[in-house]
Simulated assay, not measured.
Amino acid sequence: MPNVVLRAENLTKTYRTAENFLTVLDDVSFSVEQGDSLAIIGPSGSGKTTLLGLCAGLDVATSGTISLMDFKLSAMSEDDRAYLRNQYVGFVFQNFQLLSTLTALENVMVPLELRGERNVAPKAKALLDRVGLSKRLNHYPSQLSGGEQQRVAIARAFMTDPKILFADEPTGNLDEENAQHVTSLLFGMNKEQNTTLVLVTHNLELAAMTQRVIKMRGGRMVV
């Protein structure tokens, strides 16, 4: 039996505006199995990032259901969803989201320290070495290039051995050379750890590297 890590069924997200309701997602359904890679593409405003946020439990759908690791997110409290993310989910964002007051090493250590684990520095150092930053451990984000910051973010994302990794425009702020390096790391580590990869991107070359592509337009999935 396939091991489905993420399942979205009839997902709809509506926001109330001053005058009426705005439907950002409309009846979206799909599933992703363990170890698979999926890209979500589409023009700005098509609902890509909203969909990613719902799948990660960062927001709640208006209707429909999302199952992540067999947990129904709609039935969980915000604290329970946060615990689920810390146990099973990794994130890579377009703007890196590193903590400016922490070194590269300290940033990578954060997810396991939040779990209360100790002696996590050796694993963090090994991951930073894996992404080519063994000589930048004690540098702060402001002392790193954009490509280096994103590599720190990738190391941090894999620190918890996530079952699923959500990446939102992971190469969006990078030049072509750094984008290629980051892409290679994402897919390489995804394969090494059998992590499910779900990414939002405008980069069609990046999307083509995934096993499946979902195209969004006007909040709906299109063929």
Rank of each mutant, 00 (worst) to 15 (best):
V182S: 09
L199K: 10
L204G: 01
E192P: 11
L102Q: 10
N119W: 04
A104L: 09
K123A: 14
A167C: 07
F91L: 11
A121C: 03
I164Y: 01
K135Y: 12
S184Y: 09
Q193I: 05
F158T: 03
T210V: 05
K125I: 14
T183C: 07
E176G: 03
G90P: 01
F187T: 02
G90N: 01
T201Y: 07
S184M: 08
L133E: 06
M159W: 00
A179I: 09
N107K: 07
M69S: 11
T103P: 00
Q150P: 05
K163V: 14
G90T: 03
V182F: 07
T210G: 04
M216C: 05
M189S: 06
L114G: 08
A75V: 09
A155V: 03
Q87H: 10
S142Q: 13
L102V: 01
M159A: 11
L112V: 03
R115Q: 15
D175K: 00
F93S: 06
D129G: 12
L102M: 13
Y88H: 15
K125F: 06
M109E: 11
S134P: 04
L204I: 13
I164L: 00
R151I: 00
K123W: 04
F187E: 08
D175E: 07
Q149P: 02
V198M: 15
S142F: 13
A153M: 06
G147K: 05
A167D: 03
A167H: 08
T183M: 13
E106C: 07
F187V: 04
R81H: 00
N190M: 09
E78F: 10
L204D: 13
S184K: 13
V152G: 03
D161Q: 14
L127C: 07
E192V: 12
A207E: 05
N86I: 02
F166A: 06
L133S: 11
V89D: 06
Q97A: 14
A207G: 08
S134W: 12
L133M: 06
D168Q: 09
L204T: 14
V182P: 06
G116C: 08
D168F: 07
A179D: 01
S145L: 10
R130Q: 13
H139T: 05
P111M: 10
N194K: 15
G116H: 08
G146E: 02
V108Y: 05
Y88M: 05
T103H: 01
D161M: 13
E205R: 14
L204F: 12
